[in-house]
Simulated scan of single mutants.
Amino acid sequence: MIIVNRYPFIVLFFLMMDKSFAQFPQGDKWYQNPLGFEPLKLHTSMGFIVPAAVAGTALLLTKKDSTLRDRLSIYSEMGVTFGYKYPYSTLVQNSTGVNLMMRKWMSIGSEFSTTAPFDDYNNTVGFAIRPFARFYALNKPDWKLWFEAGGGMIYFIDNFPKPTTQDNRLGTYWNGTTKYGIGTSIHLKNNMDLLFGARHLHISNGNTKGAERNPAHDSNGLFAGLSWNLKKERNGKYK
């Protein structure tokens, strides 16, 4: 059981160590998009496919943990990421979501986010829905440490990104969005935890309208927020 429980981390470790196949997107440095190399590419649609496949396989191959209690939580967080490609867009995000523990070392969830990118060319707002999976390296009552990845869809009220002096392509209203990163939670009091961490954010339309309409966006940044655990009373109702 221990081997199965650590499987996601073992796989990610060896993929990150295998530099001979670490082909990053053109123009990216490894530290800008550390899990963007072949074949992992968590900044693309693989950022949804890989965690979904790992979570689904784990649920099929491992037994349900009957000792898990208070499995459901809700959270709200604020984050900011900074683009590392021209025009170096800054994106401010507010996200509200739910997280459900499936195993002591894994959870699944979904969030709704409002995203506001701005730079010399862009100033718009987007609305996103993103399912995700978390894999816990540490899961203690007072402290948790996890890796998270997931992807969904985002709609901007204006085309994003806009053409620039270095790239004349016009983005689209509808895009895909993926996020991956590390996070931690520290128990504060009662059923409330403090959340914070770092993540990579990618936005593009996957060439659905051709490469000439897919300038894309990549950025890195930080987030912080609060989580509330929905503890159950004896009668089965949530507090």
Score class of each variant (00 low, 15 high):
residue 70 D to C: 04
residue 72 L to S: 04
residue 74 I to M: 08
residue 75 Y to R: 04
residue 82 F to N: 05
residue 84 Y to N: 02
residue 87 P to S: 12
residue 87 P to I: 14
residue 87 P to R: 12
residue 93 Q to R: 12
residue 93 Q to M: 15
residue 93 Q to E: 06
residue 94 N to E: 11
residue 94 N to I: 14
residue 95 S to N: 07
residue 99 N to V: 08
residue 101 M to A: 11
residue 103 R to M: 15
residue 105 W to M: 02
residue 105 W to C: 04
residue 106 M to F: 15
residue 107 S to W: 11
residue 109 G to K: 00
residue 111 E to M: 06
residue 111 E to C: 04
residue 112 F to S: 11
residue 116 A to N: 12
residue 116 A to L: 09
residue 117 P to Y: 12
residue 121 Y to F: 15
residue 122 N to D: 11
residue 122 N to P: 00
residue 123 N to Q: 12
residue 123 N to F: 15
residue 124 T to I: 10
residue 124 T to S: 01
residue 128 A to Y: 01
residue 134 R to C: 10
residue 136 Y to Q: 04
residue 137 A to N: 10
residue 138 L to D: 05
residue 139 N to V: 09
residue 142 D to G: 14
residue 142 D to H: 15
residue 145 L to V: 14
residue 145 L to A: 03
residue 147 F to P: 12
residue 148 E to P: 13
residue 149 A to Y: 06
residue 149 A to H: 01
residue 150 G to W: 01
residue 154 I to L: 07
residue 157 I to F: 13
residue 159 N to P: 10
residue 159 N to S: 07
residue 161 P to K: 10
residue 161 P to Q: 06
residue 162 K to I: 06
residue 162 K to C: 02
residue 163 P to M: 06
residue 163 P to C: 05
residue 164 T to I: 05
residue 164 T to Y: 05
residue 165 T to Q: 14
residue 168 N to H: 13
residue 169 R to N: 02
